[in-house]
Write a protein that binds this DNA or RNA. Structure first.
Lengths: 257, 257
DNA sequence: GTCAATATTCTCATTTTATGGGAATGAGAT
DNA sequence: ATCTCATTCCCATAAAATGAGAATATTGAC
């Protein structure tokens, strides 16, 4: 291991349950000499990706907040979706959480969320938290719209993984239907309603979804929310498609100031 | 330039106004050969810090969202302050934005913000955006509570920078008063009210502040909000002080699972 | 205050890796 | 087909990271 990966390795030590590390402990955990660990940490601190807590402990640094804002302001999906999420929770007229989620390596991650005012429950899906690929409406609707090649890479080709044939049939059915509604697949008692946000030409495979208390939903409510989610997802997709300007030919591209 | 700094240099290219870059343009801007730029970008993409947009353009990657969540969940200041901000905007009973801000290199950066329901204006202070050090209540109240050595480093020692003597007197007065109220220093028409969140033993130099429409504030309003901000800041400080557990002696520290 | 135990930084010879020039390949456009 | 530019590949070289251990700084114990 060397170079860049040393920095990544240090950052990966930081998790929900281990949020502060001393340098000797990092060196231990990574199996590198102390001098190397001190140097790596010093560089990360200088860059703002780590920061000294107290008593020789280090925690994640404020540079992540800065880059996160930059991403929120400039990422097409996040930027286009955030407004839609606000509209959705307003129009839902019930305690709920609206999510915008996308593929992230071999998981699904929410990139924007918005809770209605009076929402008391919390969804496991929350901005920045990687979630399983094959559970929950939010994830399934994305899987259902993936190109065959990419899906095979994630769940195995039909021949090599016939165990997934049932899943494949389920995904085909979801794609046909155009939305996905589940209940208690991730959080007991919570229902998920998700619609696809797919813009192939921009490489966007995402979903817009709503999480609400399942016991509060009667059939007409559910139908109304499905409609709300599906149309919001279409709006976001359209906006993204519209933004996707084919670049001028034979010219390097760069964002205009 | 080499090693880690090459990665930093690439990331620093991404700004509000230049949010998508092609690799040749990056190579140009950094003055490095194309082959080097391609390799650097490939590594950053693999780590999730960049991601391919369309047509050879790259944008910031979802890893920043993931680390930002981790920080929100685990950073003592953000975690303790977020709840307080919600309380503040609720109790303010007027359109406003509450901010939690801190030193970040030689600037001040908001690390958590919360807007009241009906707030229409936007403050220039927003989560993740570095702001000037010596303007606005949010920043000044932090400066006013910095140890002398650190203040000198930021604005120059009294002898070498006598031009700042007026500022020094202003800061001393602010410290004496315990809060700072300004108007139109950053955004025309907006007023800022800030109180310190200082926990020296934990290395925390921050502020809790409220931004509201200046023309809507009469004297009694203003007094009420000052009280609100000051007491909220005290609560946050107390919570942080309480959390600061002196580590066990002669033992390496590590967050408990 | 001294002492002892760690934490942290420093040094430097060595190994490892990144570097970048250029060739090779690919993808469009004409 | 041919031109242009994007992208990858190759490899000798230069450069930088590495790590063992020494040197120094901190810190608590006493």
């Amino acid at each position: 291991m060397a170079g860049f990966s040393r920095f990544l390795a240090v950052l990966r030590l930081f998790t929900d349950s281990a949020s502060a590390w001393s340098v000797p402990d990092m060196a231990d955990a990574l199996g590198v000499p102390a001098s190397t660990a001190y140097r790596t940490v010093r560089d990360l601190v200088a860059a703002g990706f780590l920061e000294a807590a107290q008593d020789g402990a280090y925690r994640l640094g404020p540079a992540f907040i800065e880059y996160d804002r930059l991403l929120r302001m400039t990422d097409p999906l996040v930027h286009a979706g955030a407004g839609a999420l606000r509209d959705v929770v307003m129009q839902a007229q019930t305690p709920c959480v609206a999510l915008l989620s996308r593929l992230y390596n071999d998981q699904v991650m929410c990139v924007a969320d918005e809770a209605a005012r009076e929402t008391v429950f919390r969804s496991s899906y929350e901005r920045g938290r990687p979630m399983p690929l094959v559970q929950g409406a939010t994830s399934k609707i994305i899987l259902a719209h993936l190109p065959a090649r990419q899906l095979n890479r994630l769940i195995g080709a039909p021949k090599s993984a016939p165990v997934n044939d049932a899943l494949r049939r389920e995904l085909a059915e979801i794609r046909r239907r155009g939305y996905c509604a589940t209940a208690s697949e991730i959080d007991p008692g919570l229902a998920g309603i998700a619609a696809p946000v797919i813009v192939r030409e921009a490489g966007i495979f995402a979903s817009l979804s709503l999480v609400a208390d399942d016991s509060r939903l009667d059939e007409s409510q559910r139908r109304r929310l499905v409609l709300l989610v599906v149309s919001a997802a279409s709006l976001v997709s359209e906006e993204l498609r519209h933004r996707h300007i084919p670049p001028p030919l034979h010219t390097s591209i760069r964002s205009v100031k």
